[in-house]
Simulated assay, not measured.
Amino acid sequence: MTITPEKIAASNKVAVESLLNVSATALSSAERLAALNLNTARSLIEDSLANLKALAEAKDPQAFAALQGSFVQPGTEKLVAYYRGVYEIATQNQEEITKLLETQFAELNKNLNTALDDAAKSAPAGSDIAISAVKSALAAANSTYDSVSKAARQVVDIAEANVTTATNAAVKAVGSTAKAARKSA
């Protein structure tokens, strides 16, 4: 196996492209997170001003208390929506970077197998056992990586389902509490 300047240049080009792809993905996620934060802040200010105006126009203490209770549910829903947005951005970023890394990992495996095949062609007699052992170890490592990757995806899916269920339950509980508070006011 001969390492030529062209192979080194091609390898460097792939590494730089991979770094640029990861950087672009991270920057895109940062932009989306900044937009989410800006929109959430804008909405919070607008809602706060509207709520203050409504409270200032309340005619009696019961109306004031009822208004306060009516602000809880929408505020909670917006808070949950914000955290869902942050979670989605983070999850999408992680998925995109994972795909990029998996592509690089597959390319590395392909290159290693090609290098081993090239080495086998020019290796002295009897070295085929060592090359087979290295290929077997590489296959075992790939299998382990696949198993761990699948298990990690299952854990993420389960955690995501649990977070969604807990979030929905919390929103419903706050809604019920707010309704009960308005009725008693």
Rank of each mutant, 00 (worst) to 15 (best):
K78I: 05
E95S: 08
V72L: 10
N109Q: 04
I131V: 11
L49T: 00
Y83M: 10
N93E: 13
A81W: 00
F105V: 00
N109L: 08
E57M: 12
Q68L: 10
A56F: 01
E57K: 01
D117G: 04
F71N: 10
A58G: 11
D60I: 01
A141V: 08
F64R: 09
T40G: 09
S122Q: 14
L116P: 08
N51Y: 05
K53I: 08
E96L: 10
P61H: 02
Q94E: 13
K135W: 04
P74F: 04
F71K: 09
P61A: 11
I45M: 11
N109R: 07
T114F: 02
S48R: 13
A137K: 13
E102Y: 00
E107V: 12
I45V: 10
D117C: 02
A137I: 08
F105R: 11
A50C: 12
L79Y: 01
E96K: 13
I129T: 15
A141W: 13
A133M: 00
G75C: 10
A58K: 06
N113C: 04
L112K: 13
A119P: 02
I97F: 05
A140D: 07
Y87I: 06
G75Y: 02
S132A: 15
A115I: 08
E107Y: 08
S70W: 04
K121H: 08
A81Q: 03
A137M: 05
D118P: 00
K135I: 11
G126L: 12
E77T: 01
T98E: 04
T103S: 13
T76F: 05
A106K: 07
Y82H: 11
G85D: 02
A141E: 15
I129S: 15
T76C: 07
D47S: 14
A123C: 12
Y82L: 14
T103R: 12
E96W: 02
L108I: 11
V134A: 13
L55V: 07
A41P: 02
A115G: 09
L67T: 11
A106T: 01
Q92P: 03
Q92S: 14
D47N: 15
S132W: 07
Y82G: 02
D118T: 10
L138I: 15
Q73L: 08
E46L: 14
K99E: 12
A137C: 01
D128V: 14
N51R: 14
L138S: 15
S136C: 01
A56K: 01
N142E: 12
P61F: 05
F105P: 03
A137D: 12
I97P: 03
A133I: 03
A63F: 03
D47H: 14
A58W: 06
S122T: 12
L138E: 13
K99L: 14
N113I: 05
Q62G: 03
S136N: 08
K78S: 14
K53V: 09
E88F: 05
Y82Q: 14
G75D: 06
A41W: 14
A119M: 10
L79T: 04
P124W: 00
A123K: 04
A63P: 00
K78L: 12
T91S: 13
D60Y: 05
A125T: 11
K99N: 11
G85K: 04
D117L: 01
E107Q: 13
S127V: 10
A58M: 10
A141N: 04
D118H: 03
A66M: 12
A137E: 04
T91V: 00
A41H: 00
